[in-house]
Design a protein around this nucleic acid. Structure first.
Lengths: 125, 125
DNA sequence: GTTACTGTATTAACAGAGTTGATACAGTTG
DNA sequence: CAACTGTATCAACTCTGTTAATACAGTAAC
């Protein structure tokens, strides 16, 4: 279900985190989907369950999933109106955008990139 | 010239790095401007010259400035056509953009934010 | 209840990266 | 030479990342 690149120097838990975030944001994992158990995924990726647990914990802190002891971890529903998340991400986004323009990237390239993006449909409706 | 927030948990050299990057990207520091010497700034900020030197070194790696032993560090010229920088930043930018849309931010908000940005004029022309 | 799953918490241990500091070295300028 | 510049090296320390071994508690099915 999950696969990590071998040549990545980033911490393992961050790679797991980024991968799930990518799957959730892209719509590949819909609201309510069950994530693999920490022990199952740890075995599959030959790493310690604690490492997976940490990735899930951070994923939960960011609001992408929630965990229920005894049941498992699941993708969150209703991503709308999360002001804090938006504010955090937007600040980074603005900084990055300005840097890209500084490096000579054309505004229109950014604009068309935004326009071409598919907005994931709210699965709660 | 430079001021750091006290309550920041990030490494000192990263704070110095981010601050100069901000000044350069915003156009406050133009091409050819001389950055304060590592010792001068270190004294002013009451930190080790090595910490400043490290910030300058990374700034140089990213292409924002260049250093000449015996003379000083200066803001780089000609930020155009730096494919590598663009590619690195663009990847992060795309990821962030998708996350923002996931959290319910409207496309139009991103589009207008881009449109309102001032593109720093190329000082080499 | 028992069994077998779930996530979570705690503690320890270790390797490695991050961070700072002191110092010395080398180039530039006047 | 004197006074400045950036750079290199080394040591010391802190912090992070990672694994490991447990233990605890909630859930589901029998």
């Amino acid at each position: 279900m999950i696969e990590l690149k071998s040549g990545d120097s980033k911490p393992l838990y961050e790679q797991v985190l980024a991968e799930f975030k990518r799957l959730i944001v892209s719509g590949a994992l819909l609201s309510g989907s069950k994530l693999p158990s920490v022990r199952e995924l740890a075995t599959q990726l030959t790493m310690n369950p604690n490492t997976i647990a940490r990735a899930y914990r951070e994923l939960e802190t960011m609001g992408y999933c929630y965990s229920v002891p005894g049941k498992g971890s699941f993708v969150s529903e209703g991503q709308q109106q999360k002001a804090y998340q938006q504010q955090q991400l937007l600040a980074q986004w603005l900084t990055l955008s300005k840097e890209l323009l500084y490096w000579g990237l054309d505004k229109t390239e950014l604009l068309t990139a935004i326009e071409k993006m598919e907005v994931p449909h709210d699965s709660s409706t």
